[in-house]
Simulated assay, not measured.
Amino acid sequence: MIELRYTGLGFDEQELIDHIKASGKNFMVQGQRIKTLANHTKPKSLDVWLRNRFPKMQDTKLADNYVIDALVETGRFTATKERCPDSGKLCKAIRLA
């Protein structure tokens, strides 16, 4: 279980792994943004995935570095940089281990 800092909320990393695999990729960009969900510029990011899972937090940045570190600590992910499928830019990401 990965806990989101300051929220009291959490998610099972297996759900994230299943989502990443279903996307046909082996990574997901972090995409942390201080924007409303409606104005988020990286809809395929971890930040948007988390916001969609927690409707009361949709306009709050959730995929902070704490979440990335917690995912890496599970041993099931590595922190990396990947080309963002939304912007085409190199971005901080998690990759399946």
Rank of each mutant, 00 (worst) to 15 (best):
I17P: 10
D18N: 11
D18E: 06
H19P: 06
H19I: 05
H19N: 04
I20G: 06
S23C: 04
G24F: 07
G24R: 00
G24E: 01
K25W: 10
F27W: 11
F27N: 11
M28Y: 10
M28N: 06
M28A: 07
V29Q: 00
Q30W: 10
Q30N: 05
Q30G: 00
G31V: 09
Q32I: 14
R33V: 07
R33P: 01
I34A: 09
T36P: 09
L37K: 06
L37W: 01
L37A: 03
N39Q: 13
N39P: 10
N39D: 15
N39I: 04
H40K: 04
H40S: 08
P43F: 02
K44P: 01
K44Q: 15
S45A: 07
L46W: 04
D47V: 11
D47A: 13
D47Q: 12
W49K: 03
W49S: 05
L50I: 11
R51N: 05
R53K: 14
F54D: 05
F54E: 09
M57C: 08
M57H: 14
M57F: 14
Q58S: 12
D59P: 06
D59S: 08
T60W: 05
T60Q: 11
L62Y: 09
D64K: 11
D64A: 11
V67M: 02
V67Q: 05
I68D: 00
I68S: 05
D69N: 10
D69K: 12
A70P: 02
A70M: 11
L71H: 00
L71W: 02
L71T: 04
V72C: 11
E73G: 09
E73T: 08
E73K: 13
E73C: 05
T74E: 12
T74H: 08
T74Q: 08
G75T: 02
R76P: 01
R76Q: 14
T78W: 10
T78K: 14
T80N: 03
T80I: 12
K81E: 14
E82K: 15
E82D: 08
E82I: 10
R83H: 05
P85L: 03
P85S: 04
D86F: 13
D86V: 06
G88D: 07
G88H: 08
L90R: 02
L90N: 03
K92M: 12
A93C: 03
I94Q: 01
R95I: 00
